[in-house]
């Protein structure tokens, strides 16, 4: 189960729509499983079919999270033409972020599609998103 405040859900969706037709990406940091901060990341690929964290920005954000004794809770990104479900590329890269929720938003239509997954050892398992106030 992924619990996120409404404000962060809104920011992810807004980020995805703003960057459409390119994919957006970012992370949510947390402490003891509770979301604390959201970081919008630049998609260094600026692509409608993929994303890569900008390496310099990622170093800054990773250190910020690590120095604050927070964990990487969520990696989020958008799909612009397909459903909000991990692609084969996502599954391959998810080995780098064990224990992290992969939050996907699709901007293929005006209808909101937001889903969250755990990806461990190549196995994709959907998890419930619980939206809290704030």
């Amino acid at each position: 189960m992924l619990e996120l405040p409404q404000s962060m859900v809104d920011r992810v969706v807004e980020h995805a729509r703003r960057d459409h037709p390119d994919e957006c990406c970012g992370v949510v940091a947390g402490r003891s499983g509770a979301a604390t901060r959201l970081f919008e990341m630049q998609n260094a690929e600026r692509s409608p079919t993929g994303f890569v964290f900008d390496s310099a920005e990622w170093l800054t954000v990773y250190r910020d999270i690590d120095d604050a004794d927070e964990d990487l809770l969520v990696v989020y990104h958008s799909h612009t033409m397909t459903e909000a479900y991990p692609s084969r590329t996502d599954v391959r890269w998810a080995v780098n972020t064990p224990g992290t929720s992969w939050l996907l938003v699709s901007t293929r239509s005006d209808e909101l599609e937001l889903r969250s997954f755990r990806i461990e050892d190549g196995v994709v398992t959907e998890e419930e998103i619980r939206v809290a106030g704030g």
């Binding site: 990406c25 990341m41 993929g50 390496s55 990773y62 990696v75 590329t89 890269w93 780098n96 972020t97």
Partner: peptide
């Protein structure tokens, strides 16, 4: 020297 996992997807 700092090593980080790259984060990417499709």
């Amino acid at each position: 020297v700092t090593v980080l996992p790259a984060v990417a997807g499709g």
